[in-house]
């Protein structure tokens, strides 16, 4: 009986912990939105000098090669596999490029780019903020009259939104280009047939950009939240970094699902 009570209490405590974490995550998000107003909505506010540009450089420019290489390979592999299967079953490869373009614009471009960004940027944010937390630098910020979220998260949040959108567009273009090249070189698909944007409509582009915007917002919030929860020493920073990578990748997948379902409701089957 006692064993049962202990188990139930354990499950209850775990559930409470999850709820509390979800609430804290929400508060980090709300705090960041309020922080944007505190830093950029008023004249004469104390902003961290040059932080926004620096973070855009760290999140965007430094991820460029990584994103180009990984999504390029993903595009090549996907098109190679698609052509292989289609050539065995249907035999007609003329529709592959048209369908692929639509899929990339509304989904794969932003989602796969952001998945890659979530690992690189999420780990960086959590490790930096986490080590500041365990070395008491976050407390030192509070002693200096600074809200840690304003200084640490707001610039990363804004930079991440901008750069995720830019990199998503670039990533989609690279995937499309690499895919068409693979189809031409491996299966002789005429590039004029492959690079056909007839099926892409403004709503696909809108959905893709909305997804990139949401992913770009989610990655720094989840990672910053994990970093601010870091405890103890270097081990705590390690845990925070792992949690940030897992959490922000999961956030990207979950948002993809929710936004895709939402778009399905809005536009019917054609998204």
């Amino acid at each position: 009986m006692n064993y049962l009570v202990d188990r139930i209490a354990g499950v209850g405590a775990y559930a409470l912990g999850v709820l509390r974490a979800a609430f804290e995550l929400w508060m980090v998000f709300v705090g960041t939105i309020a922080g944007i107003w505190r830093l950029y909505g008023r004249r004469g506010a104390t902003r961290p000098p040059g932080a926004l540009v620096e973070q855009m450089h760290v999140i965007g420019n430094r991820s460029l090669l990584f994103i180009v290489v990984t999504v390029g390979f993903i595009g090549m592999v996907m098109i190679y596999q698609a052509c292989l299967q289609f050539s065995r079953s249907v035999g007609d490869l003329s529709q592959i490029g048209v369908q692929f373009a639509r899929l990339i614009v509304s989904d794969l471009g932003p989602t796969l780019t952001s998945m890659m960004l979530a690992t690189r940027v999420g780990a960086g944010i959590a490790a930096e903020i986490g080590s500041m937390k365990v070395t008491e630098q976050v407390d030192a910020l509070r002693m200096s009259g600074v809200l840690p979220i304003d200084y640490l998260l707001v610039p990363r949040f804004l930079a991440s939104i901008v750069m995720t959108m830019v990199l998503s567009i670039l990533g989609a273009a690279i995937m499309y280009g690499a895919g068409g090249l693979t189809a031409y070189l491996s299966f002789g698909v005429n590039p004029r047939v492959f690079y056909d944007l007839a099926m892409v409509e403004p709503r696909h582009l809108g959905l893709g950009l909305l997804k990139a915007f949401c992913y770009g917002a989610a990655i720094p919030i989840v990672s910053g939240f994990c970093g601010l929860r870091a405890r103890g020493s270097s081990e705590g920073v390690g845990w925070a970094t792992t949690a940030a990578v897992v959490g922000s990748s999961f956030a990207v997948i979950a948002l993809d699902f929710m936004l895709s379902v939402g778009a399905l409701w809005l536009f019917g089957g054609d998204v």
């Binding site: 500041m132 070395t135 008491e136 630098q137 407390d139 030192a140 910020l141």
Partner: peptide, 10 residues
């Protein structure tokens, strides 16, 4: 407050 290990911003 002066923190342990100084705690300046890196």
């Amino acid at each position: 407050m002066v923190f342990q290990n100084a705690t300046l911003f890196d």
